[in-house]
């Protein structure tokens, strides 16, 4: 395993490639280009158009005639003062701030136990990475069952403290959010574990031994040798989880549907509800477009940093 800190050969430049290769290159990349165009350009233009109107599937007009419901930037003005939206943004951030570090430290801790060989390593490894491969919707249903007030989680707690426990996890606003976070941590800690283990294994063994021989203890070795060498990997792992956590929907929606009330409503859940229940698509398009713009800026900045 290695981090690609030295890119292979730089991609050939147009000047160095013969004409037949250039032609084939264009043909080979064409399908991907069309698909991207199809998903990026048209939808974004459509989104932009709709977002400037009050159009809804129930408005009785096909969408090309949405201009009849023109309302300028009203949707954008509305979203600035949409308290339910901003609380969904805050809640998404909260889930991220809690879940990503917990997943990171649990994953790192587990990874550190798996660096050298021991009996049962391969089997344990295979079992521990299973959750991330479970279909998220199914994982949502698993936790829906587990957190029923007469369900097994309460049963386990009851056994531990010696008297019956009846906690209504999913109908208590705070506990529902906790339950959703637990499900996310269960499912995605393995991903951190997997990536960080790959990073730890990639730290040169000789350097760790050299540090040991120079008198560094385990923590010092980790801090001064392993951690700096894993920097890129850690950034990638964190970035992946932050991105995914921002999108969080499947597990959560199956467990709570965003409820009780709006207690577990995240950005994706909120948009989903406005799209399918309130049907004010012009407004949804405005929200979605703002998200796209913010994320694009983040992506470009991140790519610039990574390139350096």
């Amino acid at each position: 395993m290695s981090v690609t800190d030295t890119p292979p050969a730089p991609p050939p430049t147009a000047a160095s490639v013969p004409a037949d290769a250039v032609r084939l290159g264009h043909w080979l990349t064409l399908p991907a280009q069309i698909l991207i165009l199809f998903i990026a350009v048209f939808p974004i233009l459509m989104q932009l158009y709709i977002s400037l109107t009050d159009w809804s599937p129930l408005s009785g007009r096909p969408w090309p005639r949405a201009w009849e419901l023109w309302n300028g930037f009203a949707n954008y003005a509305d979203l600035m003062s949409d308290r339910r939206l901003w609380s969904a943004v805050g809640r998404t951030a909260l889930v991220m701030i809690v879940c990503v570090p917990v997943q990171f430290f649990l994953g790192l801790g587990l990874a550190m136990l798996f660096v050298d060989d021991f009996r049962g390593k391969r089997l344990f490894y295979s079992i521990l990475i299973m959750p991330m491969m479970v279909v998220p919707a199914v994982a949502g249903y698993m936790f829906f069952m587990l957190f029923q007030s007469g369900g097994p989680i309460n049963d386990i707690f009851g056994t531990l403290i010696g008297r019956p426990v009846v906690i209504a996890w999913l109908s208590d606003p705070t506990l529902a959010l906790v339950a959703v976070m637990i499900a996310d941590i269960w499912q995605w800690t393995p991903l951190m574990f997997l990536i960080l283990l790959a990073g730890l294994v990639g730290v040169p063994d000789d350097q760790m031994k050299a540090a040991t021989l120079l008198g560094a203890n385990a923590w010092q070795r980790f801090r001064t040798i392993a951690l700096p060498r894993m920097k890129t990997i850690i950034i990638i792992a964190l970035a992946i989880r932050v991105i995914e956590n921002f999108k969080i929907f499947d597990t959560l929606y199956i467990m709570t549907s965003g409820g009780p009330g709006v207690a577990t409503e995240t950005i994706s859940v909120y948009i989903y509800k406005v799209t399918t229940q309130d049907l004010i698509w012009g407004y949804v398009a405005a929200i979605a477009l703002v998200i796209l713009i913010v994320l694009s800026v983040v992506a470009v900045l991140a790519m610039r940093r990574m390139a350096r």
Partner: peptide, 9 residues
């Protein structure tokens, strides 16, 4: 200890 590849940090 001097390693074969020196194991320089």
């Amino acid at each position: 200890f001097v390693f074969q590849n020196y194991a320089i940090f």
